[in-house]
Nucleic acid binder design. Structure first.
Lengths: 360, 360
DNA sequence: TTGTAAGCGTTATCAA
DNA sequence: TTGATAACGCTTACAA
């Protein structure tokens, strides 16, 4: 104990080149525990790592000493010694604060953090846009992480080569536009979501469903369109409105679709589109849901607060994040060695905007 | 080079006690660079760390070799050697996925990540609720992080003692309920926000402003109430409605306030409260904003999509996160040694719900 | 079941 | 301006 106390002073070292100062109170180390108990450091290490080849008695004495001296293994030393970090990184592709705060991000991250923590890992978050991809590569090159969760937008040849060369496990969140048959990824079942939405509207008695999407250039919007087309096969001619990103042309195109094409229901690709569709209809005094029904992708927290409350295709982003994390950890621990592609189920959350007949 | 090539095979080691497998391709190390250039490892280390005591020529040769061999310093070894991790942790107190996805979180995290990355750190996110505080303490005990950003809800005596004992710098996000005069924290200026809101409503011609809050037990809601009271001093008797968390009683209390107390404006503590206030008024055919004005705290992405669009007190959560990160890094690098308390400015975002006279 | 000793890849002290 | 060398605190093959 005297030996230990001697070490409990604070000492200062020089200022680093980068302006940092190193000032660290000496902590209790594995040697202190070993000395205290009268065993060797390797024996202590064995109990830290749950090695079974140890006598019950020694283990108990060591554990008692660790608790008494408030010993905690130094992760920096462990990382170096065993070539791991117990850290996984989630890369985000947010070019502004709003992209960062989309719904997908929130619930998925919550799930990812939970899984990861449960399995003894920590979660690092990096914005891929900040540094044009270099943030991811330096994490890998410098061996700061054991694995990666990447947004599909980060999937590019250069990065994949790097990850392969560095032997870094990863999982893609969202079906990537390229190499999608070679990689492990998890995505929402957008196609099925569209089919469920159309089925729901038809079941409610709407006969002519129009799809409203921003564009059909991304993988997920194509899948949504495909599902829509498939659901309509042999029932009604499809009608897709691509509104671009400013939504202002919905003001005319939505009422037009109702009057000229007999549309009586809209499947909207996101909540803001749904809002603009609703607004355009209200302006023309077209009643929702009596005359026209609306359903939207994504159950945004505010869908329930729209007037009328919006029926939504709920994409289970919690599940999405959970599976991504589980697959990644499976790969890190070599329990999963093949590629995997998983689609997460959707569900319809039924609210007033699509209640043609009677109350919900 | 031959020496280097020899190392480029993959070799397997045993399965670890915890089920992990160690399989690592030997990377290029500082020794390889040293050998290649014909200098000692310490010289290479000096150029890595930007040490100036090095001849221009040697530096160039070393940098060239590092680029050629695609060398990247191993962070695990650096962390051990210099007692740092270049990692800062952000603790969240989310007990469900919804708390996790509040607005505050999103924009603040975006800002924190940006600052941190800029200063050469990485951001770790941990949910304090998952493990009842133990996630934070193990991060600190095991020396995984150089500093912490804590939610005010995590401020408790035990944790503060630990942080002091371990000499771990931290900044609190949100004014803590205890020790607020001893700690470094950053918060939105809630009191000023209320004052601005009242001033705005009065300026618009509303004469009798009512405050609607969930409760007055948290620091931030007290500040909002204090600001409200202060703004009203000598002008009108204050009227505070505490609605609890299910909001259903607003349905009767809001119209009551209008009819019996002559209320003609409501300052709501969040968007959902504002929604319920609006709904209660609409039910009684009380017109917004002609008869009654509404303003809410927090410019939630959907405030603009309410009917009518909601005027909001914008709390600059981007700034909040930015300052928290900057203060923390200042502390880590010993540029800041005293305690600090900072309030972030608010602003009113003017929309229809408070436009008593004329258009916006 | 335990101990010895080498190694993980850097950084830092001290001497040259 | 550079090089030897000893840390940093842990893990693990190998020997006992």
């Amino acid at each position: 104990m005297i030996d230990l106390c001697k070490r409990l002073h604070i000492y200062f070292l020089d200022v680093y080149a980068n302006g940092c100062i190193k000032e660290e109170k000496m902590g209790v180390t594995i040697k202190d525990i070993a000395k205290q108990v009268g065993v060797s450091p390797s024996t202590v290490s064995r109990v830290i790592n749950g090695n079974q080849l140890i006598s019950e008695e020694t283990r108990n004495r060591i554990q008692k000493a660790m608790a008494e001296l408030n010993y905690h293994p130094n992760s920096r030393a462990r990382n170096l010694a065993n070539g791991r970090t117990n850290m996984i990184a989630l890369a985000i592709d947010a070019d502004d604060e709003n992209t960062f705060s989309n719904n997908f991000f929130n619930r998925s991250v919550y799930a990812i953090e939970k899984v990861v923590q449960n399995k003894g890992y920590n979660l690092l978050i990096t914005n891929d846009m900040d540094a044009a991809g270099s943030s991811i590569s330096s994490l890998v090159y410098e061996k700061r992480v054991d694995g990666l969760i990447l947004p599909s937008s980060s999937v590019r040849e250069g990065l994949l080569d790097l990850l392969a060369a560095e032997n870094c496990p990863y999982v893609v969140l969202g079906e990537p536009a390229i190499y999608s048959d070679l990689l492990t990824w998890v995505d929402v079942d957008n196609e099925k979501g569209s089919r469920m939405a159309v089925a729901h509207l038809q079941q409610q008695g709407y006969g002519r469903v129009v799809l409203v999407v921003e564009n059909t250039t991304t993988v997920f919007s194509c899948k949504r369109r495909d599902g829509y087309l498939k659901a309509l096969e042999g029932q009604q001619p499809p009608e897709v409105i691509e509104c671009g990103s400013d939504y202002s042309l919905l003001r005319s195109r939505i009422p037009e679709a109702v009057k000229e094409k007999g549309a009586d229901a809209f499947l909207c690709s996101n909540n803001v589109i749904a809002y603009h569709v609703m607004k355009a209809l209200k302006e023309k005094k077209i009643r929702i849901p009596e005359e026209v029904g609306i359903i939207t992708f994504d159950d945004h927290p505010f869908a329930a607060y729209m007037d009328p409350p919006l029926t939504a295709v709920d994409v289970d982003t919690y599940r999405l994040g959970k599976r991504a994390a589980e697959l990644l950890i499976g790969k890190i621990q070599k329990e999963i060695t093949d590629k995997r592609a998983e689609l997460i189920d959707t569900a319809v959350i039924f609210r007033e905007s699509s209640t043609k007949e009677g109350a919900i």
